[in-house]
Amino acid sequence: MATESTVTAPPTAVERPRPPGSGLSIGLARAGWYISLTLLAVVVLFPIYMLVIRAISDPISFINAGQPLHIVSAQWDVFSRAWSDAGLARAMGVSAVATIVIMGAQFMTSVLGAYAFAFLEFPLKKLLFAIVIGTLLLPIEVTLVANIQTVRSLGWLNSVQGLTFPFLATALGIFLIRQGFLGLPRDLRDAATLDGFGHIGFLFKVAIPLAKPVIGSFLVISFLSAWNQYVWPRNATTEGAWQTVQIALRTLTTTRVDQINLAFAGAIIAALPLVLLLIFFQRQMVRGLTAGAVKG
């Protein structure tokens, strides 16, 4: 992410025998693809590149130098200043705590809810399922004004409860994991019944281990949406000490122009957890993001 990746075209290695005469045109086509891909990559990466050099450059000197495409008067300590002086450390901590609470609770409520809908029979099942579906029409943006009143009257502004409670359960998690549970072979469930597993035993010893891929995908989604939240924490916090990192970023953009690179460095710091996630869990992340969009 830090530098613009220039990709050198590979040697025109022949992968399989080509009919004579077409070698040149295939080589040209391939070069054409590399050129197009590189141009697209430059377009995608340019904003990130600008962020990085702007974060490191002294803001005033950079503007005075006529906004070049390279670093001007490097301030390498900008990251440590953003981390400690500008309060990002605390904001990252608040974000981390809120994210962990949300993920843990969503895991629990979704798995239990999914299990009930997939494997249990009980009165009012249809109605309760409709209640779950109905929440899809009531995103936090719609209910924001009223929920803030609720949280305020509970005295939960500027608290972990206030930051997390509306997100401790989610219809998406219940749906996704229920699908995963329903995908378990019927024979396997029957075998478990005959073996003598009760519902709790079956849930923990069989259903959850076998639904791991789906649960993993859901946890990726859960992490992304919890970490990236903006509208709710913006309204549920009034004190700087309770700002999540996303909110702290906005605050930093309102600082003086000669300090503006603190905001840019902050953006890099705030993105780091997701960058690490993308590097180490790329496959799960792709599976999570495409869950529901692409079959197979």
Partner: peptide
């Protein structure tokens, strides 16, 4: 894929 590592705020 890299922009999935950015939040709206970032």
């Amino acid at each position: 894929s890299s922009t999935v590592a950015t939040s709206v705020a970032v």
